[in-house]
C-alpha cells in the first residue's frame, strides 16, 4: 500500500490559518488502513485545528470531518463531494498525493491542502510498528529472477548487479548498518532454492524511459501480448 505520514500540526495550522470553513477529508484507502488518514484521524485533526487556530488567535474555525472510500477514485469522490463542497472555503486532505491531486483536479477552484506527506509503496512488519519500502513502481518488474526481493528499491544504490563492497555480514553501510543488504537477501533466497544461476546472471543497463516522469498508461490499442 501507499505509506503516508501526517504532517506536523504546526505546518497544517499555518496552511489553514486564512480559512474559516474547512472540510477535513479522510480517505478510507491506504491512509486509513495504516491509521493515518481515516475517518477517526479526520475527526481528531478537525478538533486539533479548531483548537489550534483559537489558541493562535486566528478566529473561529468551523470545520467538518468526513471520510470517503477512495480519494483517488473520481466517481467515488464526486458522488460524495458534489453535494457539499460548495459550503467550504478549502479542503484539508488526509490522502496520499494521488488523492490530493484527484480532488484538486475535480474541484479546480477549490484549494486542497495536503495534511499528509506521501512516503513510499511499502508493507509493514509483523508487529505493524514499522513500514518498509518495497516497490519503486519502475514499470519493469524483475522480481521473478531476484528471489522476490526488489534490488531497485531495497538496495540503496538500486544495483542490478550487486552486492557492492558496502555490505558487511549482510548489512548495508547506508543507514549505519541497520538495513539488510538486498543483494545478500537475494543471494540467500536464490541459494535456498538452488537458483544461483539467476544470481550470477548479468543484467543489462535499464531503460529509464520506462520510469521517466510523468508516466501514463492505457488509452492505446494493445496487441495480443498485452504490449502496446
Amino acid at each position: 500500500m501507499i505509506i503516508v505520514k501526517r504532517k506536523p500540526l504546526e505546518e497544517i495550522l499555518e496552511m489553514t490559518k486564512d480559512f474559516k470553513k474547512l472540510l477535513i477529508l479522510g480517505c478510507d484507502g491506504c491512509a486509513s488502513i495504516i491509521q493515518v488518514g481515516g475517518e477517526r484521524q479526520a475527526r481528531i485533526l478537525k478538533l486539533l485545528l479548531e483548537m489550534g487556530q483559537k489558541i493562535k488567535g486566528n478566529g473561529k474555525l468551523k470545520a467538518q470531518a468526513i471520510s470517503i472510500l477512495r480519494q483517488c477514485d473520481r466517481q467515488i469522490a464526486t458522488s460524495s463531494l458534489d453535494p457539499i463542497i460548495a459550503e467550504y472555503d478549502a479542503v484539508v486532505s488526509l490522502s496520499c498525493g494521488v488523492g490530493v491531486q484527484t480532488i484538486a483536479d475535480l474541484y479546480k477552484g477549490k484549494l486542497i491542502i495536503p495534511a499528509i506527506n506521501t512516503h513510499f509503496l511499502g508493507m509493514h512488519d509483523t508487529k505493524a510498528e514499522k513500514f518498509y519500502e518495497m516497490c519503486l513502481a519502475c514499470g519493469d518488474c524483475l522480481l521473478f529472477e531476484t528471489g522476490g526481493v526488489c534490488p531497485l528499491t531495497r538496495c540503496a544504490k538500486s544495483l542490478l548487479n550487486g552486492p557492492c563492497g558496502g555490505q558487511a555480514s549482510g548489512k548495508c553501510e547506508v543507514g549505519g548498518w541497520q538495513n539488510d543488504c538486498a543483494w545478500v537477501l537475494i543471494y540467500n533466497r536464490l541459494k535456498a532454492r538452488n537458483q544461483l544461476d539467476l544470481f550470477g546472471k548479468f543484467r543489462m543497463p535499464r531503460d529509464y524511459r520506462v520510469s521517466g516522469h510523468p508516466r501514463e498508461l492505457g488509452g492505446e490499442k494493445e496487441n495480443e501480448e498485452g504490449k502496446t
Binding site: 548487479n161 550487486g162 552486492p163 563492497g165 555490505q167 558487511a168 555480514s169 549482510g170 543483494w183 545478500v184 543471494y187 541459494k191 544461483l196 544470481f199 550470477g200 546472471k201 548479468f202
Partner: peptide, 19 residues
C-alpha cells in the same frame, strides 16, 4: 575492477566479480 576480499558472505561477492 575492485573486490572486497573480506566480504562476509564471500560467495555473492565472488559471483558478482564473475559477472
Amino acid at each position: 575492477i575492485a573486490a572486497a576480499p573480506n566480504a562476509d558472505p564471500l560467495e555473492p561477492e565472488l559471483l558478482k566479480i564473475k559477472r
